[in-house]
Amino acid sequence: MNYQSLSNLDIAIAAALIFINGALSVCLKLGLGRQLLIAALRTVVQLLAIGYVLSWIFANAQWYVVLPVMCLMTLIAGLSAAGRGKRTYAGQRLDSIVSIWVSSWLVAAVGLFAVIRIHPWYEPQYAIPILGMILGNTLTGVSLGIERMIHELTAGRGQVEMTLALGGTRWEAAQLAARQAVRAGMIPTLNQMSVVGLVSLPGMMTGQVLAGESPLQAVRYQIIIMFLIAAASGLGTVVAVLLTYRRVFSPQHRFLAWRLHRRD
């Protein structure tokens, strides 16, 4: 290893820097001292916890350990994608989980087996971080896509029903909203792809460089990851929007607006 190992003392030194923020809060009467303390503690506790979990998984690199962890990660991503937006519908949680699951696993499989070609197939050192990165971005796309679909259909109810009343099919009535929703879900990924390397250096690439990997190799990884993220996020958004569409339009070409209700 040609990088510096870090001790707990090193963390303590870095933590001292937080006191600068604390002092600022006191001097400027921001009233953020308590929140700052809690945020700093959460950073330490959450990251240490995941560090231990990952160490344990890497030490027990068996499929029956790795697979459940990947399932759990996907489930959490699906659930948190469903938690946003003012309005919701019965089944949104399931739709989020399904769309994230299908798209992320499909794309991760291509990335891991066809591009990076890991061996064995459940090699946690690759499988977990790569699935994690894909999930994190897909969850944003899915969540924005569903949220926008619900918004467009609620705000544009008059137009949706006008199209139906003129003899339009349910898809003809929904397609404008669906297009807007898919676009909304894909924009963050597109933005990210167009500024990567200029405005931001991605965490994974930075990490690989810090760990002693050559920048060119790190960049190759990053490019692959960006494409995997874009594919999964796009696919996930489309699946999520289509699932939402099926929930709020009946086969009788009716718009079931009552299914879109305020979140309790």
């Binding site: 137009q159 003129l166 099919t169 070409h253």
Partner: peptide, 22 residues
């Protein structure tokens, strides 16, 4: 039948109080 509902609405047209325009 379900699949003929658009056809039905071609013949039976509903006009809402508040017109929806594009």
């Amino acid at each position: 039948a379900d699949r003929h509902i658009p056809d039905y609405r071609r013949q039976v047209c509903y006009i809402a109080q508040k017109p929806a325009l594009l």
